[in-house]
Design a protein around this nucleic acid. Structure first.
Length: 310
RNA sequence: GGCGACUUAGCCAAGUGGUAAGGCAUGGGACUGCAACUCCCUGAUCAUCGGUUCAAAUCCGUUAGUCGCCU
């Protein structure tokens, strides 16, 4: 199996700078596993790496889509797989860097998404059904076709209920059994899965500072220019942290300062969710940045780990 | 110094005699084509001391703190 390096962790821990250092050391190229940095024009709000910061390291899946384009795990996985091959062909080591755990899982375990196609009309009709008859009635539709999902998906989680129904409609197989199969899969690479972490209070502090900086750097203008280019709040890209809050403030005429406070709050929640995700992942290497005396030592440690599989 | 009001979880806050709503924050969790999404779980004995009562956060008094007004 071929080697794969993964560098992740909650937002604002400092993945980007470490990833560049590692890439230089091990002759790597970076693939971003970030659901928002793929979009062009969304730079400030996603804290996207700037070209000059890349230090010549090649980056993939950054700025490859327009905010109005469709992008999701399935697309990510296909693209990412191709890039990994490409990087091997360059004689280099692929490094996946980003905070979207779902994406990392998809690539690492080669999760299969190909069987179905999104059925927007069906989804829409189920949303309407839920609105009319209530979420519990929608949830009950699951009972006969997929008892396991019926039990495990909460009725309020309409999005997941709909996906389960859609999956069954298209494949005549319960999504829960598909998931079960996928769950058995072994990693398709020899990998090192680093999860960077910091004490909660320090992390939250960094988040606050980062959001303050986004404000100074002109996130509000960035959002406005995206709106001018035709971005609307229902687009997936505009549901990114920092974007949805500012759009809401503009639309509702509410305070922009409060919107920024809201961004901080939501970002903290997000970081917490990310950590929950990574705790559940198998075979990850937790890297508490605080335990290292310096960036340099942290780097040395990571390189040593990487070299075990290179 | 006098008069009055207030005092419920980290914060906001319902509840005026029958055994503590809710929201936010915090912490934990789920997640397999929207994932920076979506969703779930999570806490108190009501400032203090004493009294009335079968029963008090709710009534009476004490002390403390906060706020307002007055001299």
């Amino acid at each position: 199996m071929q080697p794969l390096i993964i560098i992740t962790g909650p937002t604002a821990v400092g993945k980007t700078s470490l990833s560049i250092d590692i890439a230089k050391e091990i002759n790597g190229e970076i693939i971003s596993a970030d659901s928002m940095q793929v979009y062009r024009g969304m730079d400030i709000g996603t804290a996207k790496i700037r070209p000059e910061e890349m230090c010549g390291i090649k980056h993939y899946l950054i700025d490859e889509f327009n905010p109005q384009d469709e992008f999701n795990v399935a697309i990510f996985k296909e693209k990412c797989k191709n890039y990994i091959e490409e990087i091997y062909n360059h004689g280099k080591v692929p490094i996946i860097v980003g905070g979207t755990g779902f994406y990392i899982q998809a690539i690492l375990y080669d999760i299969d998404f190909k069987e179905t196609k999104i059925d927007y009309n069906y989804r829409e009709s189920l949303w309407k059904f839920a609105k009319e008859y209530g979420v519990d009635e929608l949830h009950k539709k699951l009972e006969k076709i997929d008892a396991y999902s019926f039990k495990t998906i909460h009725p309020n989680n309409v999005k997941r209920v709909i996906r389960a129904l859609e999956y069954y409609k298209q494949t005549k197989e319960p999504i829960s059994s598909h998931n079960e199969k996928e769950r058995q899969k072994k990693p398709s690479y020899t990998f090192k899965y680093f999860v960077l972490n910091l004490p909660r209070d320090i992390l939250y502090n960094r988040i606050d500072k980062r959001v303050d900086k986004m404000k100074k750097d002109g996130l509000e203008d960035e959002v406005k220019s995206l709106i001018e280019k035709g971005c609307t709040k229902n687009m997936v890209s505009m549901q990114g942290l920092g974007y949805k809050e500012i759009i809401a403030a503009i639309e509702n005429g509410t305070s922009i300062d409060i919107a920024f406070e809201k961004i901080k709050q939501n970002t903290r929640h997000f970081a917490k969710r990310q950590l929950t995700w990574f705790r559940r992942e198998k075979d990850v290497i937790w890297v508490d940045k605080n335990k290292f005396a310096s960036e340099k030592e942290l780097l040395i440690y990571c390189i040593a780990e990487c070299n075990k599989i290179l």
